[in-house]
């Protein structure tokens, strides 16, 4: 495990050092790129809780990513137009409040979705989570109040007390800080009694039930926590782009989130970070060489799935000892 710890520290430092260097050299674009990595990594950390620890292959996490995004977008729009939300409650542009709302909404929606989806398993679980995400996607498209198909612009990036979030570096640091918190949550969960039960539910649900712990409740809790973390990342993503759109809810997004986790190595603490780095850099690098970058991204992805099991962390830090 020592090699993995060194790799983790290296990745964490790299993700921090690049934007700091870019800032001193006056290259804000690279800060935005690093912010994108941090936010997508956080979303994937969320998914990694369900997928890596619980073995729950959710093909619908875009739902939570998008809901988080819409929470940020809707609150910002109401605050911008000085319209109260409902029952005269005023809206806000304060990020911490928006994050709480995003996480609360995602948690509350993940509970019924999880409760129904977790009745199934295997391929049914994959498809039913996909279907729920599509349901929310079509709702967002056909409901014109918040932009419908066109999405929702956030004219001024939401604020964080004491920090000028409009500038790239401070906003990056906010996202980086939240990513660090997300990773700590994952680490704490994995080592906790709850995490042990969750991993046991992945490995052998019958045995877990036999020792008196019902797997359903453990999985449902993990699914909700996972959704909340991904939702938080969605709120940040909306603020990063100053834009929320149904594409955040689309099944392509769900696929991308799965890809991030697998590219990096599922169940590994820094897997999502490594995956997001590789994905965003590939996107940027291939996009620079060819207009047809999606084709080559597909090709690389196919190669990774077929030939490089264990993902990037598997290559850097070797096989996991147990799993």
């Amino acid at each position: 495990m020592k090699r993995e710890a060194i790799a983790n520290a290296g990745l964490a430092l790299l993700l921090l050092a690049v934007p700091l260097a870019a800032s001193t050299m006056g290259e804000p674009f690279y800060i935005t790129l690093a912010t994108r990595i941090a936010v997508l990594a956080l979303a994937a950390v969320g998914l990694n809780i369900a997928l890596g620890l619980g073995g729950l292959v959710s093909f619908g996490h875009a739902a939570f990513f998008g809901l988080g995004g819409y929470a940020a977008g809707i609150l910002a729009t109401h605050a911008f137009n000085a319209e109260p939300l409902f029952f005269g409650i005023p809206s806000t542009t304060s990020m911490p409040v928006i994050w709480l709302v995003a996480m609360l909404v995602c948690g509350l929606i993940a509970l019924p979705i999880g409760a129904i989806s977790l009745r199934t398993s295997g391929v049914y679980f994959i498809m039913i989570t996909l279907a729920f995400a599509q349901m929310i996607y079509y709702f967002a498209i056909s409901w014109p109040a918040y932009g419908g198909e066109d999405g929702l612009s956030i004219y001024v990036r939401n604020s964080f007390p004491g920090i000028n979030t409009a500038r790239p570096l401070p906003f990056f640091l906010v996202c980086y800080g939240l990513l660090a918190l997300g990773l700590m949550l994952f680490w704490a969960l994995r080592g906790s009694r709850f995490g042990a039960a969750l991993q046991a539910a992945r490995q052998n649900a019958t045995r877990l039930a036999a020792v008196g712990i019902p797997p359903f409740r453990i999985r449902l809790t993990a699914f909700a926590i996972s959704a909340m973390v991904t939702g938080l990342a969605g709120a940040l993503f909306a603020d990063l782009n100053r834009f929320t759109s149904p594409s955040m809810l689309s099944w392509h997004m769900s696929g991308e989130l799965l890809v991030l986790v697998i590219l990096g190595g599922k169940g590994r603490l820094f897997g999502p970070v490594a995956g997001a780095m590789l994905y965003v850099l590939l996107e940027y690098w291939l996009g620079g060489i060819t207009e047809r970058w999606q084709f080559f991204l597909g090709l690389i992805l196919l190669g990774v799935v077929l030939f490089a099991r264990g993902g990037l962390m598997g290559l850097i830090a070797g096989k996991e000892r147990h799993g």
Binding site: I126, F295, G298, L299, L301, V305
Partner: peptide
């Protein structure tokens, strides 16, 4: 497992669409 199948065929979609 199904996860690998989902990802590999997702990659195929990217390639077919862009192709």
């Amino acid at each position: 497992d199904h996860l690998d199948q989902v990802l590999a065929t997702f990659a195929l979609i990217l390639m077919f669409s862009e192709g």
